[in-house]
């Protein structure tokens, strides 16, 4: 029981807490574009415009940005273990 709980805690959060360094499908480095993307899409530009401008042309890379939620800030407040 304890073991399964541990695994539950580790995998799903570990995967997507912070933007992946590279696209999981095509290997393109994408992490450095995330802050820009977040800021610009919060300032009213559509996600499509921003992604086109950042030269994310394949749908694998675009999916990484569309589906990502920054959970690290939330998770970091609790004790690791």
């Amino acid at each position: 029981m304890t073991q399964s709980l541990e695994l539950k805690g580790k995998n799903p959060t570990g995967r997507k807490m912070i933007i992946p360094i590279r696209c999981m499908s095509c290997n393109k480095p994408i992490a450095h574009l995330w802050e820009d993307f977040k800021e610009r899409s919060a300032n009213g530009e559509t996600k499509k415009e921003v992604m086109d401008d950042l030269d994310l042309k394949r749908y694998c890379c675009r999916a990484q940005f569309m589906g990502h939620v920054d959970l690290l800030d939330e998770v970091a407040r609790f004790k690791r273990g």
């Binding site: 912070i18 933007i19 360094i21 992490a31 450095h32 995330w34 802050e35 970091a76 407040r77």
Partner: peptide, 25 residues
Amino acid sequence: FAEQMKSKDPGVFPIHGKTPIVKLL
């Protein structure tokens, strides 16, 4: 950020300096 890493060889450095590695509280 990746650019904060200090490299011993000036020819080897992270290309995308603004790559976030982790957030610290």
